[in-house]
Design a protein around this nucleic acid. Sequence first.
DNA 1: CCAATATAGTTAACTAGTTGACAAAAAAGG
DNA 2: CCTTTTTTGTCAACTAGTTAACTATATTGG
Lengths: 152, 152
Amino acid sequence: MTSDRVTFTLNHLVGEINRSADRILRERFGLTYSQFLFLVTLDSTGQVPSSVLAHELGVSRAAVSKRTSWFESRGLASSQPSAVDYRVVELSITAEGHRLAIQMGDTLEKQFRQRFVGLHGVDLDQLNRDLHALLSHFSEHSTTRRGEEVAA
Amino acid sequence: MTSDRVTFTLNHLVGEINRSADRILRERFGLTYSQFLFLVTLDSTGQVPSSVLAHELGVSRAAVSKRTSWFESRGLASSQPSAVDYRVVELSITAEGHRLAIQMGDTLEKQFRQRFVGLHGVDLDQLNRDLHALLSHFSEHSTTRRGEEVAA
DNA sequence: CCAATATAGTTAACTAGTTGACAAAAAAGG
DNA sequence: CCTTTTTTGTCAACTAGTTAACTATATTGG
């Protein structure tokens, strides 16, 4: 059962971390962790078609489509039809959205570091490398059917 | 940014693993990963009050309440009012549910092992220990953090 | 003993995801 | 050039979670 335990441990740990991040972001910024991910991803891509953002977030195009107006109405993101492909809606982050994404990221980073001072016996960088190794091994050996289409 | 990258890597990896498990369970058993978790958790607890199962699964009592009839109607779980506390609904797994939980667990285990033959340089048992260390450190330091000072 | 409080489960209204169907636009290719 | 196929975004209907309000039952303490 060793291997199963790893997946259970992973799920449990990720659950705890995300719950904690969510709580902090709600308290201090009034936004959820998932809203933070939307912003930080859009910030990292710069202006992108809605479908590309969906792919980056690992969710369906429909999911992004439904959430876009929420971010627009709060002045955190903006959308405009592409000039070159009239099917495409280009999304971009606003200055306010960018400012917020940075601030939220910094807050989480600081909180995470504080929480792990005094944790000895685990090398976080080594852990990160191992997780990356697992991830790429996993992606290579799977018929990654992520939502619908897959970019090779 | 090291620490943030760890949480992103964790999320990404868990997403891939769970998506893969979900796909396999849907194909072979017609059930989702989350339904498997419900069954395997109920199987491990034995007969429990609905609220205890909710706690074990890390979801709200309402979430369990709404799903219970689905499992009952398929003969995988059963519920009966407690004889000692008339507020409580006791849940238990059926023989069929138990059989299914075992079979699904075995399938995932086998698939996981197959996928990781040929992955060198990562000791899964060591990884599991590290993750557990992180998890318990995290849980210890997560309670009682009201109003702590982190400059924003 | 009984009034106040706490707890278990259900329900309603909401959020955020899914798939499948669709219209419109673009790309491919005879 | 015109048909066929592909892609983009949106919508509808669904799943699975949330919180808040509610009912019914326990538990506690004066």
